[in-house]
């Protein structure tokens, strides 16, 4: 066993990268759920974003353009969900799961032409002197732009929900759509925007997997990250800041367990492999036990809205 081989600085740097796709997808889903809509199709939107971003980055040579198109691809898929659940009033849980199935299929079909191709590299952001700060420079200031974009987005979503009128309306719609409707807010349109935003975020998260983390295209390559993102939203009790905490906790333990294995720690591999899931559950139990009964989920979550007048 050689625990000294694990460098905490590098560990944190790694977890920031590992957590980025989950942060992006979870933030998007957070906004969707805040508006009172439960979209279980995150995995499908992520994988669609992954292939859209990959294909565009390969064709144009621009990873940035790839991310933009990934966001659009994810949003486009999300709009199918929006059409079904908002206009045709279909059940959200089933529609979301169908969306995942559809997304996995469509992405694999688009991806047939992109197997074994190497995408253009997403450059590390040169933060000038910040990158030269000892310890912190390597740990925090040595990443690509998407890592920071995700962090900025966390702050943005937090501020939007907390301080803006738009955020207030969104939350009102999510808490009680009938009341919001009675006040004259366009419930369906607001939810449409939220769902599209969620799709765009999930798409970018997927593109981060195919363009930066792996980077290659293989069918189904997000391998369940969308489900983790869904879990993180619940873990975060629907708060943007806690999404960051949850994603870093999950990503951190995932990276740590691999590091412990590499260092030869005599703990059974099965236990290490399941640790990210178990620890997340345990932490949530502590958090929820402290909150004592406070209903944290948006009250209208998953309920169908139909304006009767």
């Amino acid at each position: 066993m050689n625990l000294g081989a694990i460098d905490p600085v590098l560990l944190i740097a790694s977890l920031m990268v590992a957590a980025t796709p989950i942060i992006l997808a979870a933030l998007g889903e957070l906004v969707v759920e805040k508006s009172g809509v439960l979209n279980l199709g995150v995995e499908g939107m992520m994988i669609t974003g992954a292939i859209c971003g990959f294909a565009v980055a390969v064709e144009t040579g621009s990873p940035v353009l790839g991310f933009v198109l990934a966001a659009m691809g994810g949003a486009a898929l999300a709009l199918i969900f929006a059409l079904l659940t908002q206009y045709l009033l279909s059940n959200q849980v089933a529609t979301g799961l169908a969306l995942t199935l559809f997304g996995l299929g469509i992405s694999a079909m688009i991806g047939q032409a992109y197997r074994g191709v190497k995408p253009p590299a997403t450059a590390k952001l040169n933060l000038g002197p910040l990158g030269d700060i000892p310890v912190l420079g390597r740990m925090v200031f040595s990443h690509d732009w998407v890592v920071y974009f995700a962090l900025v987005l966390v702050a943005g979503v937090w501020a939007f929900l907390k301080y803006t009128r738009g955020g207030l309306i969104l939350r009102a719609v999510g808490e009680n759509h009938d009341a919001a409707h009675a006040l004259g807010y366009k419930v369906v349109r607001i939810r449409l925007a939220a769902i599209a935003f969620g799709g765009a975020c999930a798409g970018m998260g997927g593109a981060y997997v195919s363009l930066v983390r792996v980077p290659q295209w293989t069918d189904g390559m997000t391998a369940g990250a969308g489900w983790i993102a869904l879990a993180i939203v619940v873990f975060a009790s629907w708060r943007a800041g806690r999404v960051l905490l949850g994603a870093y906790l999950f990503g951190g333990i995932s990276v740590l367990q691999l590091n412990l294995q590499a260092a030869g720690v005599p703990v059974p591999v099965e236990i290490l492999s399941m640790s990210p899931f178990v620890v997340t559950i345990i932490v949530l139990v502590f958090i929820s036990a402290r909150q004592k009964g406070a209903a944290v989920a948006p009250a209208a979550l998953g309920r169908i809205f139909h304006a009767s007048s």
């Binding site: 279909s90 089933a94 799961l97 469509i106 992405s107």
Partner: peptide, 26 residues
Amino acid sequence: LPAAAIQAFQGMLLFFLLAVDVMTNY
């Protein structure tokens, strides 16, 4: 047919089933 096309097809079937169900209640 690729397995992916079948998956997408299943997704479409589910979409349509869920979508037209609106006629039952509305």
